[in-house]
Design a protein around this nucleic acid. Structure first.
Lengths: 331, 331
DNA sequence: CTGTTAGCGCTTTCAT
DNA sequence: ATGAAAGCGCTAACAG
């Protein structure tokens, strides 16, 4: 247990009442210069820091935001978190970070914990399937903004990037340079972005009369690696649900003696910072990760502080990044 | 503001006193089956979750741990955080994450905030230079374990990997295969690991009569890139303070038309997951990141819960990973 | 301008 | 086994 002076000690030392101390602390009412000086001195000398938890109990706001995400180890999320944390701190908030591994039970458990901790709001990237507890809490007034997915069950705020545009940009390019035969190794099927990317892809494949196979796996290196290992026969291009999957796929392909992109093109999604320096540099779709984090934090605070409209959705634009993991085919 | 039922509502609904509710909640005293059932039912129906902040105020423990680190965007830290969070959550604790960018002022500011939030303990990776506020708080009973550095000013707990062994392993190999002329592009000079790696290197260079230059920069891609851009003349090998620096160096080198490792060997430090798939795959020194996070969390909880000795230091072992960014030279 | 007082939601004596 | 009441550190009426 750490020893901490309280507002009471400060008051005594300064020879004033606790309310006076509170007043200088929060600048919530005028205090004479004389007293203010004495209080400040006492605070200084005691090394006093207000207990924001007591304050939180009293005011019903704690200045902390929960963030539930699949895995901080994935640079996609790390960059989002950074964007969010930078903004939140500037505004006087802190972030409690929780890894869920996309597990529904975990998510529910975490939600309970965070509610117990009186978070002022929640940033959430998780499974696509609806979570009854989450729905209930939102109904009861929990402020949340969804990241990288929209929550169908209830009209709530979100920040996403336009997956449709992203996927079409990628497909435009691939088709244009002559790819006709596709394999799509996608991420978790419960996931909003995996689902929508698949839909766009399937629709497009139909219109363009592409040959293709599609698999839902997981958004991880290992998933890509394993799936690619088991693949027999090569298409023109292997589309991957994210960059991590693409890394795994390429590794597996090379172990099997294939060359990327000579034998197959491979694409990612996200453009995490390492993809630029991957071997080969990855053709992928850039998502503004830092910006997503920042914007979502901003939106959440607006909702919490009721400055502006609630239930706003922000959609950011992806960008096609052509590098060396894809080739132009004869047409 | 989110609507929340309190212990009071539960008590009323169950027709018991609040102390009885508290008792079944915490199993802190025997309660008759009959009442227990009624209370549990009421809790269920109201969707009640105890306020751990009110509890914290009362008990002096909040179940939250602060983590101050330079930048979550660096996979080295992301993996450490993951290790820590996994362990902490299993034990009923949460993590408040704070990016400091190695900035002393930021660190001090964050420390104040975290103290205000009544953290039960602190995980800290920051600048090497001592922080007076931190020292003072530790004296007053703040529980902290330092990660990837030891804190000289005060006898406190830490988890590090043996940089001396790591550096020597690397040098053994490099010298053995014939490198004689070194450039060491190191990280921030205020940093514990940068300092100690430099010392080991300099000492070894002296004994082995190596030619070398050494620069402190920053632990980032950009720092490596910029420094390498300005380099004139190539040594046998460029040692880098971490993998990120190495990525930047290699990129710059290639832009200047050099081939790695044909023209120069380049090495990293950390072995973040991407280094295996870098172009070329990076020769580096592996540090058990997840384990560091996990062990430090474990140590911190032991200290907080006073189960075991305090002020213990844990030192983990690094591992040399030889890949393709280094070559064997004629000897 | 300043002090007194009543809670915020909970745990914990202290009675019963 | 159960309830009443005090108090954790703070803010916000309410008096003066």
């Amino acid at each position: 247990m750490m020893q901490r002076p309280g507002i009471k000690e400060v008051a005594k030392k300064a020879g004033v009442s606790i309310s006076t101390v509170s007043r200088v602390l929060n600048n919530s009412a005028p205090v004479s210069e004389e007293l203010e000086k004495r209080v400040k001195k006492a605070i200084e000398e005691l090394g006093y820091y207000p207990s924001s938890i007591a304050k939180g109990l009293r005011k019903g706001r704690t200045g902390t935001i929960g963030f539930i995400l699949p895995d901080i180890t994935n640079p996609f999320f790390a960059n989002i978190v950074r964007g969010a944390e930078d903004y939140l701190r500037k505004k006087g908030y802190n972030l409690i970070l929780c890894n869920s591994d996309q597990d529904r039970k975990q998510e529910t458990e975490l939600l309970k914990i965070l509610i117990s901790k009186h978070i002022d709001g929640l940033l959430f990237t998780g499974t696509g399937s609806s979570n009854p507890l989450l729905v209930e809490k939102i109904r009861k007034g929990l402020k949340v903004v969804f990241l990288d997915r929209i929550f169908e069950e209830i009209n709530s705020s979100y920040v996403i990037v336009d997956n449709k545009i992203g996927m079409n940009l990628l497909l435009d390019y691939l088709i244009d340079v002559g790819h006709r035969n596709f394999i799509f190794i996608n991420g978790n099927k419960e996931t909003f972005s995996a689902k929508i990317r698949y839909e766009v892809f399937a629709e497009r494949a139909r219109t363009e009369k592409l040959e293709f196979k599609h698999y839902f796996t997981e958004f991880s290196y290992d998933a890509g690696y394993k799936k690619a290992k088991r693949l027999k026969g090569l298409p023109d291009v292997i589309l991957c649900g994210n960059d991590l999957i693409a890394y795994g796929v390429i590794e597996a392909l090379e172990e099997k003696g294939y060359k990327v992109p000579e034998d197959v093109s491979v694409t990612g999604f996200d453009d995490i910072p390492f993809s630029k320096h991957f071997k080969p540099p990855l053709t992928t779709v850039y998502q503004p990760m830092y910006e997503m984090g920042r914007k979502s934090a901003k939106l959440l605070l607006e909702i919490i502080e009721e400055k502006k409209v609630s239930n706003k959705g922000i959609v950011l634009l992806p960008k096609l990044v052509i590098r060396e993991s894809t080739k132009e085919m004869r047409r």
